[in-house]
Simulated assay, not measured.
Amino acid sequence: MDERFGDDCLLGLADFSHVDVLFLFDQTTERPDYRSRRPRGRTDLPEVDVFADRGRRRPNRNSNPLTFGSRNGPVGS
């Protein structure tokens, strides 16, 4: 936890039934080029642009959120 929030920053959190946790990958490097391409390099598939591609080359530094129940651990993503 970032020290600027203080030692008691999570005080009272246990009173909630669920908590959504998001991670930001702040040390990842973004690609210099996001032009369209064929998915998986397959010539039988049409070209798609960066946000229509399911690959890892998208400029998204956020992880999938995890939802934690107060006593039961992860309940979904």
Score class of each variant (00 low, 15 high):
Pro59Tyr: 13
Pro74Val: 15
Glu47His: 11
Gln27Lys: 11
Val21Arg: 01
Arg42Lys: 15
Leu22Thr: 03
Pro59Val: 07
Asp44Ser: 10
Leu24Pro: 00
Gly73Trp: 03
Val19Ile: 14
Pro32Asn: 11
Thr28Met: 11
Asp33Ala: 05
Phe68Ser: 01
Gly6Pro: 00
Ser63Asp: 13
Ser70Asp: 05
Ala14Arg: 08
Gly12Ala: 05
Asp26Lys: 11
Thr43Pro: 11
Leu10Thr: 05
Leu10Val: 03
Arg54Cys: 13
Gly55Ala: 10
Gln27Ala: 09
Leu66Asp: 01
Phe68Trp: 11
Asp7Met: 07
Asp44Gly: 01
Arg54Asn: 15
Leu24His: 15
Arg57Met: 07
Leu24Met: 14
Thr28Pro: 02
Asp20Pro: 00
Val21Phe: 02
Gly41Tyr: 08
Asn72Glu: 13
Val50Gln: 04
Arg40Lys: 07
Val75Lys: 04
Ala14Met: 05
Gly41Lys: 08
Asp15Lys: 07
Met1Leu: 14
Leu24Gln: 14
Arg61Trp: 05
Val21Gly: 00
Thr28Leu: 10
Leu24Asp: 06
Gly6Thr: 05
Asp15Arg: 08
Gly55Cys: 07
Arg37Gly: 10
Phe16Asn: 13
Gly76Arg: 02
Arg40Asn: 07
Asp44Arg: 02
His18Asn: 04
Asp53Ala: 08
Phe51Pro: 01
Gly55Ile: 11
Ser70Gln: 09
Cys9Arg: 04
Gly69Thr: 09
Val48Asn: 02
Asn64Arg: 15
Leu11Val: 08
Glu47Met: 15
Thr67Asp: 02
Asp26Met: 12
Asp20Ala: 10
Asp8Tyr: 09
Arg35Pro: 02
Arg4Val: 14
Asn62Gly: 06
Arg58Pro: 02
Asp8Val: 06
Arg42Pro: 01
Thr43Asp: 15
Arg31Ala: 11
Arg58Val: 09
Asn62Cys: 10
Val21Tyr: 01
Val21His: 00
Arg42Cys: 12
Leu10Ile: 02
Asp33Trp: 06
Asp33Pro: 02
Met1Phe: 14
Cys9Ala: 10
Phe25Met: 05
Ser36Gly: 08
Asp53His: 14
Arg61Lys: 08
Phe68Arg: 01
Leu13Thr: 05
Ser70Thr: 07
Thr67Ser: 14
Arg37Tyr: 11
Gly55Tyr: 09
Asp49Arg: 12
Leu22Ala: 03
Asp20Gln: 04
Asp15Gln: 09
Arg57Phe: 10
Glu47Arg: 15
Gly41Pro: 05
His18Leu: 03
Pro46Ile: 07
Asn60Cys: 06
Asp44Asn: 12
Leu24Asn: 12
His18Cys: 04
Thr28Ala: 10
Asp20Leu: 08
Ala14Trp: 04
Phe5Asn: 01
Asp53Ser: 13
Asp53Pro: 04
Pro74Ala: 13
Leu13Gly: 02
Phe23Leu: 11
Glu30Thr: 12
Ser63Met: 09
Phe16Val: 09
Asp49Ile: 03
Pro74Trp: 04
Gly6Tyr: 07
Gly12Arg: 04
Arg40Gly: 04
Arg58Asn: 15
Asn62Thr: 11
Thr43Ser: 15
Pro74Phe: 05
Pro46Gly: 09
Asp7Gly: 13
Arg56Gln: 08
Pro74Gly: 02
Leu13Lys: 03
Asp2Gly: 02
Tyr34Ile: 01
Ser77Glu: 13
Thr67Gln: 12
Pro59Lys: 15
Arg58Cys: 10
